[in-house]
């Protein structure tokens, strides 16, 4: 087990290195001269050259890449041009809002998706199964920005049930609509996943055996079916949280939710390259971390992997 864990951690580090390489190439290729951006339009050539030397921009590319890795290893992601603060500080200051939104989206997609999937599987091909299947297909196909605008218009603007975007107190009142917009597609996905998995497990021989020896339905679900379905869910839930924390640009932009996604959108408008690339890197880090945690949890839960 330790060897498996070690291997997985090492592979995650390799992935991170590859991700850093890609973000380095991207920021190198991105338009705009960082020295010029920092110095301003009226700087003298001498000033420009000085800043270039300071930033190491006059060095060969592989030295620049080495410097980049060195800085990242010391958690220095450069300065945001727009805010003039270190990128990491800007990210951390906005991260709590994104985390709140991510957790809400997560809770809502499970709260809707699990019961729907469960009910749909109870009677395969029944009315509820068909209706929920069709609704799910529609839910994953709605453009998030549009769904957000429509929800805002009816529930917030017309009927005044919720605030028109932004962040405030009480939190649940503000976070509900963006959370719902974020979670509705995932809810459809979980409904489909739970349904498929339940139907699969219910036809397994061990369930038939349990039924044949007279296990009550409630016990059957509790002891035999639900644990098997849950193990599939754990992996997906972990990955979802990683993806949501990586920043949800569209939803945050529509609702004016002050997380890292909205900040990234502002950075796009201002061509704030360090902040954009910092957010990309920050998000990729969470996704890699979530994948690793899921892999390890899975290995721990599955005796076939655990005992190796």
């Amino acid at each position: 087990m330790l060897r498996v864990a070690f291997e997985k951690v090492m592979w995650s580090l390799v992935d991170l290195l590859a991700i850093l390489t890609i973000t380095f190439i991207l920021s190198y290729l991105l338009p705009g001269d960082p020295a010029r951006t920092i110095a301003g339009p009226h700087a003298s050539v001498a000033d420009l050259m000085r800043i270039r030397t300071q930033l190491g921009l006059n060095k060969p590319l592989y030295v620049q890449f080495g410097l980049y890795l060195w800085h990242v290893a010391h958690l220095q992601f450069g300065q945001s041009i727009e805010y003039g603060t270190p990128v990491l500080a800007a990210l951390w200051s906005r991260f709590p809002a994104t985390l709140e939104l991510a957790v809400t989206g997560m809770v809502l997609e499970l709260a809707i998706g699990l019961p729907v999937g469960f009910l749909a599987a109870r009677k395969q091909g029944g009315v509820f199964d068909r209706v929920s299947g069709a609704a799910g297909m529609a839910a994953v196909s709605l453009p998030q920005f549009w769904l957000g605008i429509v929800l805002l218009f009816f529930l917030a603007f017309k009927w005044r049930l919720f605030p028109i975007g932004g962040y405030g107190s009480p939190l649940w009142w503000y976070v509900f609509l963006p959370g719902l917009t974020l979670g509705i597609g995932g809810a459809a996905y979980y409904a489909q996943l739970v349904r498929a998995r339940l139907l699969e497990v219910m036809n397994k021989p061990f369930v038939t055996t349990a039924r044949a020896k007279g296990v009550r339905t409630a016990q059957l679900y509790k002891r035999h079916i639900v644990p098997n379905v849950l193990s599939t869910l754990v992996t997906q839930i972990g990955m979802d949280l990683g993806y949501f924390m990586a920043g949800v640009v569209v939803v945050e932009t529509v609702f004016g939710w002050p997380g890292i996604g909205l900040q990234a959108w502002t950075a796009i408008q201002a061509l704030d390259v360090p902040l954009i690339m910092g957010t990309v890197l920050f998000g990729a880090f969470w996704i890699v971390a979530a994948n690793l945690v899921v892999d390890l949890t899975y290995a721990l839960m599955d005796p076939r992997i655990r005992v190796r």
Partner: peptide
Amino acid sequence: SRLANVLMSFPLTLFAVAMVMI
């Protein structure tokens, strides 16, 4: 497999945005 894994690890929308800007 590694390359696919790495590409899937980027936050989709933002990654696309960064590439489109280049």
